[in-house]
Amino acid sequence: MAQEYGARFPAWVTTEWLNLPEEIAPQLADTATAWVRAWRRMDGPVVNEMSERMYGIARDLVRSRREAPLPVEDDPASSLLAERVDGRPLDEEHLVGALRQSLVVGMVAPPILLGSICVHLSRDRELQHRLRTQPHLLPAAVEEFLRLYTPYRGFARTAAHEVELHGRTVRPAEPVTLVYASANRDADQFPDPDDFVLDRPNIASHLAFGRGRHRCAGMPLARLAVLVALEELLAGTGGFELDGPLEGARMPEIGYVSVPLRLTAGAA
């Protein structure tokens, strides 16, 4: 579920919103999957090779839009090419880098989240049935799944200047890791934090997409993509259950990266 459906679906989403040729979708799915697997096993040469392939897709996209731009309201690459800062266009490096980063971030998190959701629903068949028969509950369910199974558990930063925090002195250049996903299971904020609770009154305060100036810019697209993926999975099956060993992610990710499922056909 995570490495096949979970990887192919976001490749098609990315291809759609970046207006890429259809043949790019399977290529992007295979490249991103190979990149992530190599990254997890610390295989530097393969990481670099797959990363360069994604840079190649981004460079080709910039070149194509220079030759034949699309309406800026409908196309991210054309919008970036039309952008001006103090009257000057963005540097080629920034254009390619921004688009390449869009290819990456849209491919890494969805497979883990979808895998974790499927593990949860395989273990809670009553909830699975309820969401299948009452699809209007899915938007609220997606928010609770995001709270429970945020794909990234934290990030690292380096202190710019000395600061005193909770009785601890953090010094310049000292690396700090913030496991912000733990806030989503803070019992003071979310009663019964390890339980799935539909329509939590304060669900909007979860930190699945971060907070403040670094909050994920792709939130609307991510929510829509997860909603559609889960909606289609439930509508296209009569049921599903775990059918093999699970493989968990490592830092900085959290969740499942391999989720074998046995699918039951739905009613004709």
Rank of each mutant, 00 (worst) to 15 (best):
G6V: 03
E73C: 05
P151C: 08
L80C: 05
I24C: 14
Y180W: 14
D243G: 10
F196L: 06
I254Y: 06
V170T: 03
A156P: 01
S64C: 10
E52L: 08
I117V: 12
A82Y: 13
R84Y: 13
R185T: 12
G218N: 02
F155Y: 15
T177V: 12
A77T: 11
S182C: 11
P252A: 02
Q27V: 09
T177L: 14
L178S: 09
L261A: 11
G87Y: 10
N48A: 12
A82K: 13
S182Y: 04
G210Y: 05
E126R: 07
P172R: 10
A204Q: 10
R88V: 09
L230T: 13
M42K: 12
A181F: 07
L95W: 01
S258Y: 05
G255V: 01
L61F: 07
L28F: 08
A160K: 12
C118R: 06
D186P: 14
D30C: 01
F209C: 03
A183H: 00
R132Q: 10
L99W: 01
D195Y: 00
Y152F: 15
A11H: 04
R88P: 11
A29Q: 04
E143A: 04
N184H: 11
P111A: 04
L90M: 06
T14M: 08
S78R: 02
G218Q: 00
M54Y: 07
R84A: 09
F196K: 02
E232L: 13
P260A: 08
P252H: 01
L20F: 14
V13S: 01
L80W: 07
G255W: 00
A159K: 03
M251Y: 14
A140N: 12
G115E: 00
R53H: 13
T33K: 03
A34H: 02
A235Q: 12
M251Q: 07
P71V: 00
V259M: 10
T169V: 15
Q189N: 12
A173C: 11
V228K: 05
D124C: 08
D86Y: 02
E247H: 15
A34V: 00
V104M: 05
E174S: 02
R65Y: 03
S205M: 10
E4H: 12
I57E: 11
V197N: 06
L233A: 07
L198K: 00
A267N: 14
E67V: 12
D186W: 05
R157T: 14
R223A: 04
D192G: 10
D43I: 04
V176A: 03
D60A: 15
W12C: 08
D86C: 01
A268Q: 13
A109H: 01
Q101A: 11
R41D: 06
Q134W: 02
E49M: 04
E174P: 07
V62Y: 04
L70D: 04
R123T: 05
E164Y: 05
L234K: 07
G244Q: 08
T133I: 06
E126H: 08
V163W: 08
P260G: 05
V142E: 00
D74Y: 07
A82C: 12
R153S: 13
H166Q: 08
L246H: 14
D194E: 11
E247F: 06
V176L: 09
R66S: 12
E83P: 00
Y5F: 15
Y256N: 03
P10A: 06
E83G: 10
